[in-house]
Amino acid sequence: MASTTEAATGRQGTEARPRARWTRNISAKIAAIPMIATALVVFVGGTIWTVVYSFTDSKLLPRLRWVGFDQYERLWSQNRWLISIENLMFYGVMSLVFTVTMGFILAVLMDQKIRFEDTFRTIMLYPFALSFIVTGLVWQWILNPQFGIQGVVRDMGWTSFSFDPLNNPQTVLYGLLIAGLWQGTGFVMCLMLAGLRGIDEDIWKAARVDGIPTWKTYVMVIIPMMRPVFITTLVIVASGIIRLYDLVVAMTSGGPGGNASQVPAMYVYDYMFQAQNLGQGFAASTMMLLSVLIVLIPWAYLEFGGKKHG
């Protein structure tokens, strides 16, 4: 048989020479350069850079003079930072609990084969199209003590009525919450509604034939089935909350009383770009990263751990 010699010559014999591995799909690789650069340089590189420089005493300009954990020690001894963390935790927990429960309840109401569903959804979701700046400024006006809700109620004769959350350090976070919930609940409702619609109709038929009351079906069957939707929603909402910045800038600028509604993102911005104390800004943003990882890693583990994805 001539097949062995044929096989030997065939390899080099024709014009189809072996291409080097990296030139395979060369167009695809060139086209992917922006993605690769973003992933490696900006996301990975940028993160590492900031973490590394958080261990230096960079002031106006970044410089590699190591100071160990000094920046972190200073950070955690700053009253302003501690308040920021406390505020974020309070706002975050309240916001998560309310957006998710309200979003779910609204989605259930919307899922009752109602008429004008599109109209209701359009109204509930439009705030999500608006920026936090617009949201913050509108609610700042509605909560204005002189002309807003408090003023209107007092004008109606209840002169002792008091509703001025934004100017009271004890209640300012509730003021932020009112605006934040207004902006974001519609979005969560939409995610939940999509989750409810994704559940097999036959589940409802089976529950009906079995005579299980509707509320019980929701609690015992539907909510457990929607676990992935809840988790994804929590992750999206939570990672948004950690970034909370614009809303506070627009509504309170961190006040009243200077620090009452400070959040970490504001601390980072002020130290990086106003106070010219880069090291503090880097340390604070590294702490923000850490808090996101605390949310993200268990989620990624639950979602992708075990089973292969791709």
């Binding site: 096989a7 065939g10 390899r11 014999g13 024709t14 189809a16 020479r17 072996p18 291409r19 395979r24």
Partner: peptide
């Protein structure tokens, strides 16, 4: 893309074509 071996079509080695 195959891992090893050859493919010939009409007397031409098209393994990498």
């Amino acid at each position: 893309d195959i891992t090893d071996g050859q493919i010939w079509i009409k007397g031409k080695n098209v393994t990498w074509a």
